[in-house]
Design a protein around this nucleic acid. Structure first.
Lengths: 211, 211
DNA sequence: CCGCACAGGCGAGACGTACCGTCTCGGCGC
DNA sequence: GCGCCGAGACGGTACGTCTCGCCTGTGCGG
């Protein structure tokens, strides 16, 4: 109904799929997203253009899948659930909420300052802002799982009595992540570890249990 | 040195400049930013392509200037001076900080839910995320003046003893604006007046003066 | 203060290039 | 042998540059 024809996924070439991901990520990091073309990806991957058009609706969709594949493989290679990277994992719970959050936010700051992560992420975020469908996939597959880690850590802190049980964990988590993304997106001020720490301290003050 | 040739701005046609702004804004709101082309703007404005390429480096730069021009004229029409935000002005100071902030954040929520504001802003924000030079102009001319309104209102609250004098107004303001932009950009959850209110309440709890 | 001369911005559109998205081939692997 | 594959031709669109005369604002000389 929606598509006039559906390709047979069971006969899909895994070799081509991976080659397209590699080529896409390489071209974006080398020449930038804007100058990366589908024809260029196809040529670099040694693949026919139709093979890309058959499986993806847009250049951004290719890059998103390439990014997800990269994250999945990174997670897998990292063994189990060692935290830190963008594939990331659960937020540590040492019992010191402030320290745990600072650890994670500092890691996020480092990622945002790393061009290898920064450039493709900017391309995807920008496309997602304008294209609701792609943005939904981006949010669902990459952003929201990340946010849930914060939610669970904050709920654990509530259970431990470190955070006001009446506080909304969702708002709390957005208070941590929103300002960081804001500085990153609009480049208003530099992203430093000191900023991450100050942010955590200020937010936590508002989350303290009431007497 | 930077440009091989600099056009003579004193001989510039004001009529063409305005026609280009009008055409750009009309086309973006009618057909969307992605489908808006420089050739289309030129044709709609009754202007040669070269006239656009002579004065602007990119489609996004045209739209940014058109947006700024629109804001400037709106401000002018709104009465006095007070340069800065698109329609905005100084944040009211009724003595009730929470109420004042909720008023402004609710207005921001309304703007973000208004397609006439939402669509072109998304286009500019997306372009600014990817293009540092355009992003800097966007931030400098539109975003930062807006943020300064918050800074001044928060500093006034500090002077009045409603906010901890040790709190950093910059971080405080990002705590208000960051989460809002985050929801807007990534469409994670709906933007409502209730959310704006909850945000203000939570942030203000962390800003209360200490005993 | 006026009118003439001209540099240069103007509308229009031709031009070569790049990439789009579609389509059509054999060929080859599942 | 079905259908995905690599390869690439194809028409279409928009890019950014360029080349026309036309026309207008600026500045000079009277």
């Amino acid at each position: 109904m929606s598509d006039t024809k559906a390709p047979d996924a069971s006969r899909r070439s895994e070799r081509s799929r991976r080659a397209i991901f590699d080529a896409a990520l390489a071209l974006v990091s080398e020449t930038g997203y804007a100058r990366t073309t589908i024809e260029g990806i196809a040529a670099r991957a040694g693949v026919g253009k139709q093979t890309i058009y058959r499986w993806w609706p847009s250049k951004a969709a290719v890059l998103l899948d390439a990014f997800l594949d990269l994250a999945a493989r990174a997670n897998e290679a990292a063994g189990l659930d060692a935290p830190g990277g963008e594939g990331a994992g659960e937020i540590p719970n040492t019992g010191d909420l402030a320290a745990d959050l600072k650890y994670v936010l500092r890691a996020t700051v480092d990622e945002m300052n790393d061009p290898a992560f920064d450039l493709p992420t900017r391309a995807l975020a920008a496309e997602g802002i304008v294209d609701p469908e792609l943005g939904a996939r981006f949010t669902e597959a990459l952003l929201e799982p990340q946010l849930q880690y914060y939610a669970r850590r904050i709920e654990a802190a509530q259970a431990a009595g470190d955070v006001d049980p009446d506080a909304d964990p969702r708002i709390a988590l957005e208070l941590l992540v929103g300002p960081l993304h804001h500085r990153w997106a609009h480049r208003t001020l530099p992203l430093t570890h000191g900023y991450a720490d100050a942010l955590v301290d200020q937010v936590l003050r508002g989350l303290a249990p009431r007497p």
